[in-house]
């Protein structure tokens, strides 16, 4: 009789806890060195200090490198694009890029968004960051 029951809607969850707040990326800044990290680390291992302050990155970033992948990987069907972006706060972040990848150029502006990237077998949508080209 189970097939007659309405499908249970699963609540979305982030790809990993502690990465996102209010649609933005949670970063850490070392008070000792000023370096910015994403994800926020436990401590600044380069200066061996544990004074990491938490803040959220802005949404604007610039494309540092990219590729369009033409074979399937675990959660993505081809073609899909991925890349590294540089945030003006001083951190480089990896992630998928929305769209067909045709017009990507190093240095172009993108904005970051948190969106459902795939759905688990039990129906749970998984939220992750992705970069969207800005016209």
């Amino acid at each position: 009789m189970n097939e007659l029951l309405p499908e249970k809607k699963q609540a979305p969850r982030p790809v990993r806890e502690g990465l996102y707040r209010g649609g933005q990326l949670i970063a850490g800044r070392s008070r000792a060195s000023g370096r910015v990290f994403f994800p926020k680390p436990l401590k600044d291992f380069q200066t061996n200090t544990d004074t990491i302050s938490e803040f959220v990155l802005g949404s604007e970033c610039k494309l540092f490198s990219f590729t369009t992948v033409h074979m399937k990987t675990l959660h993505f069907d081809p073609p899909y694009s991925i890349g590294y972006v540089d945030f003006p706060e001083g951190v480089r972040v990896f992630g998928p890029i929305a769209g067909n990848g045709h017009d990507l150029k190093i240095g172009m502006k993108l904005k970051v968004e948190i969106a459902p990237l795939w759905t688990e077998e039990d129906g749970t949508p998984i939220l992750g960051h992705r970069f969207v080209p800005v016209d």
Partner: peptide, 27 residues
């Protein structure tokens, strides 16, 4: 298949695979 990083690697979950590591550097 494309060789992925370890199963719970954040970049792997977000679509990274070995050829792409080198494609990003080739670019």
């Amino acid at each position: 298949k494309l060789i992925p990083p370890s199963d719970d690697d954040l970049e792997g979950l977000l679509g990274m695979a070995m050829p792409s590591v080198f494609a990003l550097s080739a670019r």
